[in-house]
């Protein structure tokens, strides 16, 4: 699993990346009440908006950590947005993306680097 400074995580399986927000981000947001997951087929570019996550008093854009095409959105979050708080880095995933350049993945932070980054905040 790799991480971004905007607190997204990515797990890569072949050329399919599963993307979500980190436990740290989920805690900062507070109770998540709504997630707008992307539509299948949407082309995303690194750093562009992928999804929107909302708590009661905040709305945040989730950025695509890498480029590709959305092949699945986590529809279960529609009825159970609280999964993002309960299982941010597993069941609370947002989207699966078929990545166009797997090398982008390697450029992201690993767990140790991300943890060190959190220490600086």
């Amino acid at each position: 699993m790799r991480f971004t400074k905007d607190h997204e995580w990515v797990a890569l399986d072949g050329d399919v990346a599963t993307i979500g927000i980190t436990a740290y981000a989920a805690e900062q947001l507070g109770d998540v009440v709504f997630v707008e997951v992307p539509e299948v087929g949407k082309a995303v570019k690194t750093g562009e908006g992928l999804a929107v996550v909302e708590s009661v008093k905040a709305a945040s854009d989730v950025y695509a950590p890498l480029s590709g095409e959305v092949i699945e959105g986590n529809g279960a979050l529609g009825d159970a947005p609280e999964t993002v708080n309960a299982e941010p880095e597993t069941g609370g995933w947002f989207a699966r993306v078929k990545v166009s350049d797997p090398l982008e993945y390697e450029a992201l932070m690993d767990r140790a680097a991300y943890d060190a980054y959190l220490e600086t905040l």
Partner: peptide, 12 residues
């Protein structure tokens, strides 16, 4: 559902 509104979403 006030995250739709200007005081949170501002230009969005």
């Amino acid at each position: 559902l006030s995250t739709r509104e200007q005081h949170i979403r501002r230009e969005k």
